[in-house]
């Protein structure tokens, strides 16, 4: 302990000595001498002061030494070792768990949790509504497409039926234009047989 103190004193004295040297006339040479005397103990300052014949300087130095000691004690770590973060204990903090037992702190936690939860549920509801709207729109669109498709199908069916009816009623001339004699033959067959020609008519319409 004693040695560490002296070493730190040296460093502290250096700093303070330099500052002092600026103020004093002699400069750093005197400071170096004085440091060496510090280590030696009480004997050193007496001859130094005797040689120079200036008791005031020695007194000032002594005062400075005292200041350095006080700085040391302010909270520098005593051992120059690395301490892991987990091992360092927080000063002035209570050890152990912090319980929540008073109504105020409980109410604040509750209010925070409740607000958080309400927000979550609200956003969930909004999301669900939006999704529902989108689904409805899609369904409506699909229905519309379906109905359109059906209408188109009906239309084509109707058109086909009309086409089929033409040769029956009075569209002979048109058919003649297309197929000529074959159509006439078919019509003739229709006139004689009621059941059979239907099939033929279908095949003919497909052509």
């Amino acid at each position: 302990m004693g040695t560490t103190r002296t070493i730190k004193n040296k460093h502290a004295a250096n700093g303070s000595g330099i500052k002092g040297s600026k103020a004093s006339k002699n400069g750093p040479v005197n400071d170096g001498v004085i440091k060496a005397k510090k280590n030696a103990g009480t004997r050193a300052p007496i001859p130094g002061s005797g040689v120079k014949g200036r008791p005031n300087l020695a007194d000032i130095l002594k005062k400075r030494k005292k200041r350095v000691y006080s700085e040391k004690e302010l909270g520098l770590p005593q051992l120059n070792m690395v301490t892991p973060v987990g091992v360092q204990k927080p000063r002035g903090k209570k050890k152990g768990k912090v319980f929540v037992d008073d109504r105020e702190s409980m109410a604040t936690i509750l209010a925070i949790v409740q607000a958080e939860k309400d927000g979550q549920i609200e956003s969930k509801m909004i999301k669900a509504r939006q999704m529902e709207e989108i689904r409805e729109a899609r369904r409506a669109e699909a229905d519309k497409k379906e109905s359109e498709r059906k209408a188109k199908l009906e239309e084509t069916k109707d058109s086909l039926r009309k086409k089929r009816k033409r040769p029956r009623a009075g569209g002979k001339t048109q058919d003649d234009d297309v197929n000529g004699f074959e159509a006439v033959k078919a019509l003739a067959a229709e006139g004689t047989k009621a059941a059979k020609p239907k099939k033929k008519r279908v095949s003919f319409a497909a052509d």
Binding site: V98, V100, A107, I109
Partner: peptide, 23 residues
């Protein structure tokens, strides 16, 4: 023992799923 702060939060969080009025 009473609950600690994180424990209280967790408990309230769970209860808030089912209850409206926790106060």
């Amino acid at each position: 023992r009473p609950l600690t702060e994180p424990e209280t939060k967790v408990v309230f969080d769970k209860l808030a799923n089912y209850c409206t009025d926790l106060k």
